[in-house]
Design a protein around this nucleic acid. Structure first.
Lengths: 221, 221
DNA sequence: CGGGTCGCTATACGCGCGTATAGTCGCTTG
DNA sequence: CAAGCGACTATACGCGCGTATAGCGACCCG
């Protein structure tokens, strides 16, 4: 039993039709997006009639809010466990726990595109969590970052999300499903490579910055 | 009748209704996605009747194919110019030319999510183009990358795409619209910072890799 | 034991969509 | 000048959607 969180344990009731609908909605929203997912299909997956969805949740938008709420609670619980077990910067816990909230992750990524407010809030929190990881502008004297850490944190967060968002294309490039065990491992290892190696030199970055100031001139005059 | 207030001064030949429809579709597909965009709205934007869209393109799917084709041609032309003018690894050209194909970029990003085959093909090409940029596994002896370059190239490509895909959230975190001049510049500079600085040490990466094999336990080093 | 609530289904309504078809206008051409 | 033809519009059809409402059996409670 790993129920460290212990706040209202919904495990007992999770066989109710209401929970099944919520889970089915989570899956459909994650897979097809909010607009494309239909109440009828969600009901079919949950094994109930479409009317029951409305009976329990009132409307499609309210159903989304319920799913958002559920996901938010799951993420918070995971986060609490992560904070409790792993110390600062314990990458191994984060790496190992990733498969656990994979379905939730896919939902959240889609929700970011579909305009879910809960997802937007979580994005902001992730940016905040990522910010301390960014190298500080004054950390080294030569070639130090010139942009503020929050901007970089937001970009890194969006970039990490992009991998999951484009899982179809990433999987095609890899030749293996990103969400399979092997694919997931390859992605994780490669991400560590990416995060631990600079792609360009600080000199190249400086010259590119210079190019930003002189737009449109593709060749030296 | 045509809306007399056609404000934007576009190219001389592109005033035909067919071109206007195609451009309107590009914008609507980019903004709302393929499914959400409606022929009626596209026609309204183009200043024509919905029937004309069908007259010229036959179906919504065929309209998408036409837009895909148009976008593909634009990207190829840009690419040719880049290859002709800029030499190997000329970042300043890429940086300076970015605003020019911004609308096309947004369309392509959405198209990646909407299942456009042209976009998928371009993604694969971008991966191929990114691959030579990846540090080689044998480049340095200590802490060298352990994953193949193609995997890393695919991930970097998806990550770069993620920034544009989540422009709404990135803009919120930045406090300024990512597609404004100021926002775009800040993003570009920050991206250069990210690309030119490693986020974690190779030691941290190694310990995280160890964590991948032994889920749930361990602390670094 | 009987009324009320709750979980659940069946059916229907209105709407906006993509698509289809018939018709109008204006320019070309022999 | 008249016939033809392509650009373009008006209108309508069918479909699937979210939503609404009525009804039905099971269970609780006084």
């Amino acid at each position: 039993m790993t129920t460290a969180g212990g706040s209202d344990a919904v495990d007992v009731e999770d066989l109710t039709a209401r929970a099944r609908i919520r889970d089915a909605a989570l899956r459909h929203f994650a897979e097809d997006g909010f607009e494309r997912a239909t109440i009828r299909a969600i009901a079919r997956t949950a094994g109930v009639s479409p009317g029951l969805v409305r009976h329990h949740f009132g409307s499609k938008e309210a159903l989304r809010a319920a799913v958002d709420d559920h996901v938010l609670r799951m993420v918070r619980r995971f986060n609490d466990e992560a904070l409790a077990s792993g110390r600062h910067g314990n990458l191994s816990f984060a790496a190992a726990a990733r498969p656990a909230l994979r379905p939730v992750q896919r939902y959240l990524l889609r929700a970011l595109l579909d305009g879910s407010k809960a997802a937007a809030k979580l994005f902001d929190e992730m940016v905040e969590m990522a910010e301390p990881w960014m190298p500080q502008p004054d950390e080294t004297t030569d070639g130090a970052p010139v942009s503020d850490r929050r901007t970089r944190a937001a970009l890194i967060t969006a970039m990490a999300a992009g991998v999951g968002l484009l899982h179809e294309h990433v999987s095609r490039a890899l030749g293996v499903d990103m969400f399979s065990d092997e694919g997931d491992r390859r992605v994780a290892v490669a991400m560590l490579d990416i995060y631990s190696h600079a792609l360009i030199t600080t000199d190249m970055a400086a010259s590119a910055r210079a190019g930003l100031d002189r737009p449109g001139t593709e060749s030296p005059r």
